[in-house]
Each structure stands twice: as structure tokens, then as C-alpha cells.
Design a protein around this nucleic acid. Structure first.
Lengths: 209, 209, 209, 209
DNA sequence: AATGAATGAGCGTTCATTCAT
DNA sequence: AATGAATGAACGCTCATTCAT
């Protein structure tokens, strides 16, 4: 039965995404892709004319799920640390779930960091995409802090942008440490780490009120 | 004689280190190593019986230079933010320089992150080494904060361990972003980023005194 | 309807001819054919059931244009060297032009020799076609020499068949050298070479009158 | 047993030469080379770092045998048509034999023409080598005609250079026809063709004395 | 201690061809 | 008549590793 309407394309993308995140881009061979898709080499090449093109497509595919879900005016939703935590963790949870759906049952091994670094090395264009993603995440945090400020939940004179930047870096650092330390990354570990980091940040922030 | 043998070993290690940091472990071939050392394939195999063994050796070799130089009692040296910044940056600077010396004239392309991630994927043992290195860095920061606390430079009731952890994560996050954004990593970029991050951290810490 | 079908067939033939002459048979892929015709793989296979069948068809198609245009009784038209040259060059010119028309605007890259050799290797039947073509060219020359003989333009006792064979070989040799030496074969180069070769031949022939 | 002193290299060259002449450059795969040499793919790549480098090396290897054997002053040896024929055929014979020796027992399938054309297409440098080879052959013929002229064996006023050029083209043409017509090229066929062509040429030359 | 010849598995990619639609 | 999805063999080439010298 000849597939239509991009179904095969999506099968390849999902398989490639899982494999790339598990083993890294370089380490994934067409043999692996064949094994996981059940398709022939030729079929894969029919849809993506090179491994690099596949990488770029997978990347864009991934970005759809990594995208900060469109949170409408976080500055209105965040009133205190509790609502901040709630919103942030819910948002991340949604990300993971939309990502999980993409995986279509594959194991969620999630070595995002290695994959991103390799992707950047391979194709300049992907660097820009990642940079934009990171900027969006920072902006999201900034808006949250704006909400907090309005409710006097952060020290007077604090700059939401600065706080956002700081927390963002901490979150990134924490995530990175996870990649170094964990072997079988699970969503729960990430969520726990995010939560701890946010709490740590607020502890510091409020220590001297 | 023995001396000479050790010398060859070191030649290989230095070449491998440069190449691993530049291209990543997987991407480096024996061909590359031959090109940079001027030695034969057999000679390299004579000193390291596999690529993985070479990786481990290079890693240990690298760790010597990455090692937090033995700073004697940082808690005695740090009195205020200025002396904190000074000590931290000087320490990092020394690290870079000892590393530069190892490179023996090679270009300092420094994709540490990719290399670390690949190394961890390749060999479990290396994960432990990295984890220890990170712990040492955190401890160093903690001792610095202890010095600050003694001089009442941080809010009363603040936990030096907590502050250390937070700053450490921010520094890691900042370093990571650098790898994503920079192309030609230079020592200067790292130093500048470290400095900015520290200053940001203190701005937040002192905002509400 | 039927017309249209024949038209597609001709589109494919023309594209294949150009490509075969430019890159050689083996080097031309269906991808190339798709690129030049704008048709799909399936469409080409619909008209020619294999690459070899396409080759044979292209070959026959080419032969129509390579065919010695039906020169009526060249022995009546050739009276001296001047009329010989004129007739021969005009005939060749017509060949080129009919061929150019076939190309439908494509660049006239004309590596006939490579194409012929590959074609022969691929399909025994084509060898016969080429052999017949060469025989026809020789016969044409022979008839010309008969005309010359009638007007006593060649040494008494000379055999027109022998002269034809000799000149034919020279022309073939000259053409071959062109393929070795030229990069971008142009009709002008061929015409010039033919002319020079004929003149050389007559110089030798008449040296001792 | 590890081979030394280029023996393996020579094995590869001889095998490649036979295969290239038999099937043409493009058509020969590393699988073919492995089959004929008994070596592994890696071994061949150890000696020639690409197929193109192998082509160039084979070409130079071939040229040693194709080289017009150093005939000392042919103009002194050639006195009449008989001695001309003798010298020319002996020289060709020597070429074939030195070439046969290179083949080391392989079948003498000799599709020189296809191989040359492909080689030229592949690598510009080889074109120059061929051109020089052809020039040398022409010069050899010219010197022979000089000898004939000295003994008044050619029409007064005839230019040895012109005669050489003409005969050379005829020989090339004759050789080319052979490639089109023959399937299993044998030395004998070539020798016979050369001889016939020379005789034809002289018949024409002397027809009108 | 050091060389470099040899191995063979595996890589990404291209190819002519088939066939359901 | 025409499309394009799918196949799988074959391609040139690189790789880490072994080993006789």
C-alpha cells in the first residue's frame, strides 16, 4: 500500500527524532532508521534527500513541541511564587506531553543537549532556531516576573528582565547537570529539578525581606 | 629512554586533547591524530590500546588542568564582592592558562561541552570524574560565600551552600549558552561571561538591602 | 490525444539525446532526465520500459539526423576539388543543423565518440547500426571520387574506393583527435577540421602530378 | 605476509589496468578490483587514496608501455616502404608486448579508446598526457618520412610533416573503426590493420609516379 | 619503540526499476 | 497517460583495529 499525505514522512521524522535524542545525530545511521521505521533506505531518501536535510526537518518538527505553548499574558496569571511555580511547571509539563505524543510510544530518552550541540555543529541555520527558542523562554519568565512585581512579590527596584535572565541561566545550568548526571532521563527528574531550582531562586530572593 | 617514551605519550595526549575539543571525540579519527602528531598509527596504538583508552587518558590529562587550582582557604581571601570577583576570575584565568600551555601552540577551540557529553556517553567512568569536578567547583564557591558571610556581605540568614549552588548553576547555564551561541570560543568570551554572571547575581542578592 | 503522446515521447528522446551526448550514457540518470523533461519517473518508464530501450530509441532517433542526407548522385555533382569540398561540407553542415534542431535549444555539447562506444558496449544491435552508418559515409565519399575520376581530377589508375577509404579514415582520425583535445565541441571546430583534412588529402594526392 | 617494496601496489595497478581497458573506468568497481587482486578494499585504499588517484596512477603506468620505444634516429633506418613498414610494425609490436607483460597473464581486452575518453572526462591532467603521446607518435612518423625523402621514395616536394600527419590520422581512424567493429580485440587485428593502412597510404602516394 | 600494510564492517548516497493509484 | 512512493543492490569511501616487521 503506497502511503499518502505525508504519513510516511511523519513516521521517519518520529523515528529520527527518537534516535537522534537517544544516540546523538552522528551516531544514528540509516541502518538504525531502517530498523525503526521498517522502511527501506531508498524510501527515506525519497522523503529527505540527505541526512542533513533530515536533521533540519527533525529539528523543526521538534521545535513545534519544544515551543513554549502559547501562554496568554503570563503577567496576568502570576501573582505570587505559588502561581509562578504552578504556571511554569504546567507549561513545561505540556511541553513534555506534546513531545511524548510525537514519540509515538518510543522510550523517552532525552539527551537534548548532545543533539543540540551536534545539530549546531552540522548546520548553522539550526543555531538561530535554538537561539530564538531560548530567547522565547527568557521572555516568558520575564513576563512572569512582571506579574510578580505588580503584586509586590519581588524586592522593590528589581528588574524583571534581570531576574528572568538569572533564573533562566540557573534552569539551563540545572538541566545541563542533569544530562551529566542522569542516565535514563525521565520527565519526573526534569520536573523535580525545575521545581527545586525555582524554589532555590525564590529562597535567595526573599531571604532579606 | 624512558623519558623519550613519556614524551611521545604526551605528544599524543596533547594532540588528541586539541582535536577532541575542536571536533568532538567521535569526529576525530586516527588519520587526524597521525596528521597532528606526525607519528604512525602503530605508534599511537603502542601507547594507547584503543580509542576509548585514549579518551580516558586524555580526559585525565585534561582534568589536571581543569582542576580548580589549589586555592588555600578562599574563605579567608574573600571579604566583599570585589575580592570575590577577583579571586574567581583569577582562578579561572589560571585554569585557562594551564590548559593553554597543554595545547602547545594549537588553536584554543574549546567545545568542552560537546566533548564532555560524548565522553560520558562513551565511558561511564568519566561521568564520575566530571561529577567530582563539578562538586569541587561548587565547594570552592561555597567557601567564598562563607568568607562573605563572615564580613556580613550577604543577607543575614543566607546559606552559603545555597548561594553557591545557585551561582554555580547560573555559571554553568551561562557557559552553556556560550557554546550554543559562539562559534570561535575564546578565553576572553568566557571570562567576560563569568564576570557578568557574577555581577548579575550580586545585583539580585543586594537589591533589597 | 495520440499526437500528445507522441509529443511526450519526443520530449524524452530529445532530452536523453542531449544528456547522453553531454555526459555519456552511463552517467545520465533518471534524475537527470526528470530534471530536463519536467516529467516524472513513471512517465518516462511508461514510454520506454528500461534505460537500455531508451538508449536504443535515442540511438535510432539520432541516426535519423546523422543519416547522410540523401544526396542524389554525388558523382554527378562533383567535378573538381572545389565542388568536392563544397558538397562534403554542405552535407555535414546539414547534418549538424538537423541535429541542432533536434536539440531544441539545448547546448550542443557533442561527445559523440564516448556515447557511441558506451552504446556499443551496452547493446550489440547498436554496433550494427553504427557500422552501417560508417559504410554509408564511405560510399558517399566513393561516389564523389568517381565524379572526380570522370573529370580526370585524380591520378590515372587511382581506385575511387581506395581513396574514399583513405579519406574516410583520415576524417575519422581527425574527428577523434578533436574529441581528445577539445573541451567544448562546437560545430565550427568540426567543420574546420573536416575542411583542413580534405585539403591535406588533396595536397598529397596532387603533389606529384 | 606483509608485502614490501611496492609489490602490492603493482598488483593493484595491473589489475586496475586490465579492468579499465576491459570495461572502462566508470564501470569498474572496487568489488571488481577486490575480486581480481584478492586484496581487501582497505588495502587498495591504503595504496591509492581514491579511485581517481588510482586512475591517474594506472594511466601513468600504462603510458610507460604505450611510450613509443626509443627508436634511435628512424630517419636513418627508413630507406623505402619495406623498411618503413618493418620499423613501424616492429615498434608497435614491441609496444604490445611490453603492455602484455604488464598484464601479467590477464586477457588482452583492449578498449583503449573508451578508457582514454573516460579518463579525459575524469581528470584534465590526463588529457595533456594523451596529447603528448599522440604528438610523439606523429613525430616518429615524420622522421620516418624524412628518411624516405632522403632516398627519394616520396614525390618530390612532399612535406614529411604533412605526410606524417595524414598517415597518423588514417592510423587513428583505422584503430577507431576497429574499436567499433571488433569485440575481442587481439593484437593480431591491430597489427593487420596498421599494415593495411600503411600499404593503402603508399598505394595512393605512389599511384601517379 | 615504532612502522605501515592489511582487514572488513559500516558509512551516506545514488541507482534503475516496480507498481498502486 | 502520468505520478511518485518504495525497493534493495551497489557505489566510493572511512573507520578502528591487528599484526608482521
Amino acid at each position: 500500500m503506497r502511503e499518502k499525505s505525508g504519513a510516511t514522512r511523519r513516521v521517519i521524522l518520529a523515528a529520527a527524532l527518537q534516535l537522534f535524542l537517544k544516540k546523538g545525530y552522528k551516531e544514528v545511521s540509516y541502518q538504525d532508521l531502517i530498523g525503526r521505521t521498517g522502511l527501506s533506505k531508498g524510501a527515506i531518501y525519497h522523503h529527505f534527500k540527505s541526512k542533513e536535510e533530515l536533521l533540519v526537518s527533525v529539528f523543526e518538527f521538534l521545535m513545534q513541541s519544544m515551543q513554549q505553548p502559547e501562554v496568554v499574558q503570563p503577567e496576568l496569571k502570576v501573582k505570587d511564587m505559588a502561581s509562578f511555580r504552578k504556571l511554569f511547571l504546567e507549561t513545561k509539563q505540556k511541553q513534555f506531553e506534546s513531545f511524548k505524543k510525537m514519540q509515538a510510544g518510543g522510550t523517552l530518552k532525552f539527551n537534548k543537549l548532545l543533539f543540540f550541540l551536534e545539530a549546531i555543529n552540522e548546520n548553522e541555520k539550526l543555531k538561530k532556531i535554538i537561539t530564538e527558542l531560548l530567547a522565547k523562554e527568557t521572555l516568558f519568565l520575564e513576563n512572569c516576573f512582571r506579574g510578580l512585581k505588580k503584586h509586590n512579590q519581588i524586592p522593590r527596584g528589581s528588574d524583571p528582565a534581570l531576574l528572568a535572565k538569572a533564573l533562566f541561566l540557573m534552569l539551563q545550568g540545572a538541566e545541563m547537570i542533569l544530562f551529566f548526571v542522569q542516565n535514563n532521563e525521565q520527565m519526573e527528574n526534569f520536573m523535580k529539578t525545575y521545581d527545586e531550582t525555582i524554589q532555590r531562586f525564590f529562597t535567595i530572593l526573599q531571604k532579606n525581606d
